[in-house]
Design a protein around this nucleic acid. Structure first.
Lengths: 219, 219
DNA sequence: AAAAACATTGATGTATACATAAGTCCATAC
DNA sequence: GTATGGACTTATGTATACATCAATGTTTTT
């Protein structure tokens, strides 16, 4: 990774560490530890952590440090509820504003999603998550409302905490999401292509709900 | 203001300065200037600024600094669009969860709103804004979803940038909001009291739209 | 033995010195 | 006269030393 802006480097590195399960809920992310392992001073690390706290990805205890928030079924319901409605809004707005290029971009992602190699491996899972992020945040971008985009990005990432969290404990079984998602992504893209705002909203909301249900059917 | 946590002190002070119109859109908030005037070092000021940027209240140019974002009719439409839908959601959720104590709290605020002294003065305007904030963020709190609450708080404050901004240029005329708001606040509270989610959503959305229209009828 | 006071530890909180780069202005070349 | 290039200015970016405080363990007192 480029080390031009150390703060940005620290920010991305920390997110990467979190997504790669280097920490578990409740763990403290120590400034000194991180600055050691990333080989830079505390200053940029500290700024990156502060940013993650401000964005709601980490919690903080004064004079104690930043830590991974503990997931709970109730918190999961809250974040998926927010995400469902906000992504419903962004999908509807995207249906209003989407250009031909936007539609092509989305279909391109769906093609990529279909052709992920070695399905079932950890590698494939990472590829899948990356594409999924591009798809959802892509729609948020298309809707041309930076506030909705911001909230969408936030709730998306927050909900992914759960996807990664449960993935660790249920890592044995392949989440069905990898099979239902492409089909739903096509539905959503079609609705956006047809500029059908209501339909786009409905299928997107259904899609998010599906993700939630597949994750939490066991609770 | 207490100077126990300098970072928090800096954060609140900067917000205060912005709300008191010490800066105009496009102005850079220099770390050195702020640390001089607040009589502390650059470090806490810098952290506070970073937080405000992360929260979307300030924009930032690399190696150049943080600045007040320029308002535009389009940006206003975006923020009020987001706010309308999110507050609609929080109102509906609040209608689902509200307790008797919550309802009493809201009616209490409405009473306060009715009895603001010396209407028309700057003093009254500040009182009005404070009560209004308590009302809207109170509903966000009642809905018991910290994500919706966070987005609600953010879009509320972002929209208030416009209220303050235009207030400066139209400071002569008394905004009608001071007359229509209490009536709409009563409607909203009634809907929440009756646990009528749909109605709460609708009247809240209408209320936010009214605010927007009263501000931007001239654009 | 239990409880209170104290010392220790280890992290964040803060100040400051120095490095770096964006923007500006002036001098020089054409 | 315009354009190019390079020093200068200024504010941010970064490293580091020191201050502070929460947590914990240890001693002392009753």
């Amino acid at each position: 990774m480029a080390k031009k802006n150390l703060e940005e480097f620290a920010y991305k590195s920390i997110i990467k560490l979190i997504l790669e399960n280097h920490f578990k809920p409740g763990d403290f992310l120590l400034e000194t530890e991180l600055s050691d392992s990333l080989e830079l001073s505390r200053t940029p690390v500290r700024q990156a952590l502060a940013q993650l706290v401000a964005e709601g990805f980490l919690d903080k205890k004064k004079k104690k440090g930043c830590f991974i928030p503990s997931p709970s079924p109730q918190d999961a319901r809250h974040v998926f509820y927010a995400r469902e409605h906000i992504e419903g809004l962004t999908a509807a707005s995207a249906a209003r504003h989407a250009t031909t290029a936007d539609i092509e971009y989305l279909y391109g992602l769906i093609e990529k999603e279909k052709n992920v190699e070695n399905p079932g491996t950890q590698e494939a899972k990472i590829a899948y998550v990356t594409i999924n992020e591009s798809f959802h945040l892509g729609i948020a971008r298309i809707c041309l409302n930076k506030y909705l985009e911001q909230y969408c990005r936030h709730s998306f990432w927050r909900s992914h905490t759960y996807i990664f969290f449960f993935d660790r404990y249920y890592s044995g079984l392949t989440p069905n999401g990898q099979k239902t998602s492409p089909k739903q992504h096509i539905e959503i893209t079609k609705a956006i292509e047809e500029h059908d705002e209501e339909k786009a909203k409905d299928v997107m909301r259904q899609h998010v709900r599906t993700t939630f249900e597949q994750l939490f059917v066991k609770l």
